[in-house]
């Protein structure tokens, strides 16, 4: 079980308090009527499914109820960074280096 730090509650809590929201930073197409089938498929279904340093969304469902982002190594499951939902994506290469990957 993961221990996850909620950046809004500012506490560390067990994984069972949270719900995983899948890959982070996927933007909904701005103009649906001008979006092609390929672009819809990309938005709805295609996923990076990263083996290594991945960014994902988590929601603190049994706490504040808010979404935030987590950088996690999907091989070791180690969490490398937690950041709020409007913060920019951190430098993944630097985080990977820090984690010794």
């Amino acid at each position: 079980m993961l221990l996850i730090y909620c950046p809004y509650c500012e506490v560390e809590r067990p994984e069972t308090e949270f719900h995983n929201g899948g890959e982070a930073h996927i933007a909904r197409p701005a103009d649906p009527s001008k979006t092609s089938d390929e672009e819809w498929a990309e938005f709805l279904y295609m996923r990076s499914n990263v083996k290594g340093i991945a960014v994902e969304r988590w929601r603190h469902i049994h706490g504040c109820g808010r979404f935030f982002n987590v950088v996690r190594d999907t091989v070791s499951d180690k969490i490398l960074k937690v950041y709020k939902v409007d913060d920019p994506m951190p430098d993944l290469e630097a985080l990977a280096k820090e984690a010794g990957r």
Binding site: M1, L2, E15, H19, N20, K51, E56, R72, T74, V75
Partner: peptide
């Protein structure tokens, strides 16, 4: 598990 992982283990819960 509820999250993507390649660890070939899983949460005990």
């Amino acid at each position: 598990d509820q999250f993507i992982s390649y660890s070939q283990t899983g949460g005990i819960h």
